[in-house]
Design a protein around this nucleic acid. Structure first.
Lengths: 144, 144
DNA sequence: GTTACATGTAACTATATTAATTACAATCAA
DNA sequence: TTGATTGTAATTAATATAGTTACATGTAAC
């Protein structure tokens, strides 16, 4: 199974809001770039708002960044859009048999290891900001 | 989303086969420890067999390890049971708008970053062997 | 060769998530 | 008041998980 593309879409949205900072980033505008429909964008924007990454108001067109580009990491977005349950990237079978030596110890043995693996992944996301994405897109575009 | 517990069950199975190496690890025996049913165990064992981590034969009761404990990493198990598509822990929206600056660059910008995050996670799994799990269970049990 | 038992698989179920979509109430600017 | 936008609920189709039943296939032992 894969982590929902809500995360990638969230990054796309935030980056595009910045590129379009002199314009109005309505859900319809954003949806056209992502290539999906506005309702889905609004759902994701709602999550980003809850995490205080964007400002957006009912009745008023357009979303704006609530923080500086350099202060929003991919990890912030990842957590905002709720694609992985807290500390549960890996699910573990629930009721191993306590009468068995392995059954009664396996969870406390592997859960910390799986947690370290998850944190290693999240640490990478935490080291990249939307500003990095922004700059990289500028670079990539230059080369075209 | 979470990664399927097939992975944790796979680790459980391999560890238990080792603890039970003087006995017969039938799918029914393993299922009792995992606390699920034998058919599910056989399905997972089948994947472990395909990855050459266990030996098992139709008609003959019991599965055995095909490699030394210290030569089986959690990453081997993770790949064997196919819980995450190759290099696609993160899914990315498929058809961003090429007419938009962000749309036509976002994929090639974020995919390498997401790949680095995934590899960081997998590297942790690659650093732990079933032997480590085995030893840790021995330790945990001593403390009880 | 028949019996007993185990593995390998297919099929089916219930549940959950994703992504797409429609619909509409609530909100605000002009 | 009008027109446009956000917020949100509901629906759908597709896919994955985990559990389960059923049975053909394969092997050993009698």
């Amino acid at each position: 199974m894969s982590i929902s593309s809500r995360f990638a879409v969230g990054v796309h949205i935030l980056t595009l809001i910045e590129f379009n900072k002199d314009g109005v980033s309505s859900s319809e505008y954003l949806a056209e770039s992502v290539n999906t429909n506005p309702a889905l964008i609004r759902k994701i924007i709602g999550m980003l708002k809850k995490a205080e990454l964007v400002d957006v108001h009912p009745g008023i067109a357009g979303a704006n960044l609530a923080k500086k580009l350099s202060e929003i990491t991919l990890l912030d977005v990842y957590k905002a859009v709720n694609v992985v349950p807290e500390n549960e990237l890996f699910s573990v079978h629930e009721n191993p048999n306590p009468k068995c030596l392995v059954g009664r110890n396996i969870q406390e043995t592997i859960i910390p290891i799986l947690s370290i693996a998850q944190i290693a992944m999240e640490k990478v996301l935490g080291s990249v900001t939307i500003e990095d994405i922004f700059e990289d897109i500028v670079e990539k575009e230059k080369q075209k």
